[in-house]
């Protein structure tokens, strides 16, 4: 069943703040095997001009994707999440995420398309800090595979 085009442009309320912790950044950097000291050593981060350790570029996805759950689980939208794979991902940064940030995400449905039996959903997540300043925007393209469509990947 095609998703309702009238949802295009719909924004969801900002999420409660996510507080970025130094140790969570360290855990993520270790999980991707990245030893850049800007992620773990506050002094190294300061030497680069940052007020505290910063997060790797894709760290923020965990926050924006959780926020996108408002969209993907919206019963009115009716997305069959069991058939969803991740199509594209993009980020545009005003500044890096850093320890101590309290980040809120506002999710908006940018586009809904049907293509080759698949439903394609573009969600934009605008991430702001506690002062209301923009930090990063994340664009996530989700593809809900049609019942007869070929298998994709996540």
């Amino acid at each position: 069943m095609a998703l309702d085009q009238s949802f295009v442009g719909r924004s969801y309320p900002p999420t409660d703040p996510y507080e970025v912790g130094r140790e969570k950044i360290r855990e993520f950097a270790q999980a991707v095997g990245d030893t850049n000291p800007a992620y773990t050593d506050p002094e190294a981060a300061k030497a680069l001009g940052h007020s505290d350790v910063i997060a790797p570029p894709t760290f923020v996805f965990a926050i924006t994707f959780k926020a996108a759950g408002q969209v993907t689980t919206d019963p009115q939208l009716g997305l069959d999440y069991s058939r969803v794979v991740h199509g594209d991902q993009k980020f545009a940064y005003t500044r890096p995420v850093r320890a101590g940030d309290r980040l809120t995400v506002t999710s908006t449905i940018e586009a809904i398309k049907s293509m080759a039996g698949n439903e394609i959903l573009d969600i934009r997540g605008e991430v702001h800090d506690e002062a209301g300043e923009h930090v990063v925007t994340a664009w996530t393209k989700l593809v809900a595979r049609g019942a007869d469509a070929a298998e994709g990947e996540a």
């Binding site: 910063i54 790797p56 991740h86 890096p96």
Partner: peptide
């Protein structure tokens, strides 16, 4: 400096 990255996108 990882902060040099101002945009990053991929298709899976």
């Amino acid at each position: 400096d990882p902060a040099a990255v101002v945009e990053y996108g991929v298709r899976f």
